[in-house]
Amino acid sequence: MTTRARTRRLYGVHALADTVTMLRRSLRHAWRSPSMTLTVVGMPVVTLLLFTYVLGGALGDGIGGPYARGGAYVDYVAPGIILTAATAGALVTAVAVCVDVTDGLGDRFRTMAISRASFLTGHVVGSLVQTLLSVLLVLAVAVLAGFRPDATPVEWLAAFGVLTLLTLALTWPAALVGLVARTPETASNVPMPVQFLPFLGSAVVPPETMPAGLRWFAEYQPFTPATDTLRGLLTGTAVGGSALAAVAWCGGLAAVGYVWARSAFDRGAGRRGVPEARGGPGVPGGPGGPGGPGYEG
């Protein structure tokens, strides 16, 4: 093994260890301040109950087919609401990153001999863990409300794969929002419209019931293929080309979000205070700069 390969492998091990440390920190923070987590979990549960029991009768009759006249509208709506639980992770990430940055922790981590990627990756993976736990809770409530998925083990795995990919697609751009937002309040407001988007797709009613212009929007926005894929995997309805579209949307958003957030963090986005004139973070010879500790090459 060449020296370069050994160095690269060693760096990979360090980067992973740093990310795990940051992940532990992120999860500890979530555990110690449960109000945000409870909100993130609570809203989809309340929404599910609202659409199942209060609005479900009228909406089920409107959709028709197996959902009409007291049929299990919950089978139609549950996958859409489970998806909204996944969108909540974006809010958690944006706020958590912004709090760290405004507290000056981002600058401190930049000056330490740790992997640059680990700060954001720890937040994103922490948010992913919280989101998947929230999804499980929403799923449990949906089952109690009458949702009866008939997925095979492979389909369950695929469904969680879609949810994981969607969460990453939303949390990486949210990390960028957290870096550039001036206050945690701003950081929490920016992802709000994203949480609203699934409702403007096929989460609650099929796009065919909407007026022409809105139907076009509902059919071609990123959440519709994700919702249809999840519904297909869990309840056995046709998935068609929506799985490919969902993976393409999520993969694309996650990749763009990752690259953009990483470059923003490396450039020092969200840095509070005056950057050092010489030997500061990212400056050649300084911590994180070429030849300095924490440099990634």
């Binding site: 009228a58 909406l59 409107g62 959709i63 609650v204 009613v205 099929p206 019931t209 909407m210 809105l214």
Partner: peptide, 11 residues
Amino acid sequence: VFVYFFGGAID
């Protein structure tokens, strides 16, 4: 949202 997105399915 209720008028344009959901309204078509509510009688």
